[in-house]
């Protein structure tokens, strides 16, 4: 009994490396497989998937590790996209510079809004993140100099260190994938660090954390800023993929989809968020090809996962592994 408990604890603490590794290997192989099909279509679907995986991963940092249910996370995708659109309009098309500006703007927005939102808790926190997200959405709609409601068409993709390499779809795909992998490793380090432990502790029991000397607010605020900065990068990529920037990138429906991706994949596992984004977008792609009423099919699937699969797809994997490995302890 005691050993079994120890085993469970180990499984809880050690992130499963195998499924994450397999997932990344599969993603590396996607462009090669795409050659045998409608290459540019497949690449664009998977690039989009990876971009959303970055956004979902960043949301998992605060949702899965901080229990902060943000209903305004798409705002950061919007900030990243508009950083590209606005800078490109003024002739700044170096993506590294655009990313820097996007991250700084995201951090400023995250700190300013979270400083208010974090004063509230539970459903009031959700509500205030929703409100801030919508404020930014309507602000973007009002930016008539940058397309307003209609959005802003870019003249092309950004340059990377002065080159036009991102115009190549395959290169762009691998840049996005490299960023996802980098952020995944970074997030793994963060969640296992001193900071990550405090954040997880606050998720478990904020009063207990106060009673050993931690003020939750400072750590939650920092987590929101980090998550916002990472999510802004996904916005920079999304603008480049579509060569188009629109307020639609930051609607509250989009924030809801990001939540659904993380919950579908499994909160608080990082790789689950990535898997959730892949599953969500591929389901959407496949189902919308079958019928116009694809939401009627996607809805019940999400409900099934929410009801039956505590821990989402990652939780399902953990349970399966425990069951198959349970016979030989």
């Amino acid at each position: 009994m005691r050993d079994a408990q120890t085993e469970v604890t180990r499984a809880l603490l050690q992130p499963p490396r195998t499924p994450a590794l397999l997932m990344f290997v599969a993603l590396v192989l996607v462009p090669l497989a795409a050659r045998f099909g409608a290459e540019s279509f497949i690449l664009s679907v998977f690039t989009r998937t990876i971009i959303f995986a970055i956004a979902a991963l960043s949301l998992d940092l605060i949702l899965g590790y901080g229990a902060l249910v943000s209903f305004g996370h798409a705002a950061f995708m919007g900030i990243g996209s508009y950083a590209v659109g606005i800078l490109a309009t003024h002739g700044v098309d170096e993506i590294l510079l655009q990313m820097l500006v996007a991250m700084l703007a995201a951090i400023v927005f995250a700190v300013a809004t979270s400083a208010v939102s974090l004063r509230a808790s539970g459903v009031y926190y959700i509500m205030s993140t929703l409100a801030f997200g919508q404020m930014l959405y309507f602000f973007a709609v009002s930016l008539s100099a940058y397309g307003g409601d209609d959005g802003l068409t870019l003249s092309g993709r950004s340059r990377l260190l002065g080159t036009h390499i991102l115009a190549n779809d395959r290169a762009f795909y691998y840049v996005a994938l490299a960023l996802l992998a980098g952020f995944y490793l970074l997030a793994q380090r963060i969640t296992a660090s001193r900071f990550g432990r405090v954040l997880r502790g606050i998720r478990e029991n904020p009063v207990r954390m106060r009673a050993i000397g931690f003020e939750p607010f400072r750590y939650q605020l920092t987590a929101c800023a980090l998550a916002g900065a990472v999510c802004a990068i996904s916005g920079v990529l999304l603008a480049n993929l579509a060569e188009f920037v629109s307020p639609a990138y930051m609607t509250w429906q989009r924030s809801g989809e990001l939540l659904a991706m993380v919950i579908l994949g499994g909160m608080g596992t990082l790789w689950g968020a990535i898997l959730g984004a892949i599953a969500f977008l591929l389901l959407e792609e496949v189902l919308s090809g079958l019928t116009e009423q694809w939401r009627l099919i996607l809805g019940p699937i999400l409900i099934l996962v929410a009801l039956g699969g505590r821990g989402g797809l990652a939780g399902l994997y953990a349970r399966l592994r425990r069951r198959t490995g349970g016979g030989a302890p």
Partner: peptide
């Protein structure tokens, strides 16, 4: 400080 983001705390 607990504002340390990279070193695994489990190894401290």
């Amino acid at each position: 400080s607990s504002f340390r983001f990279f070193a695994p705390v489990g190894d401290e």
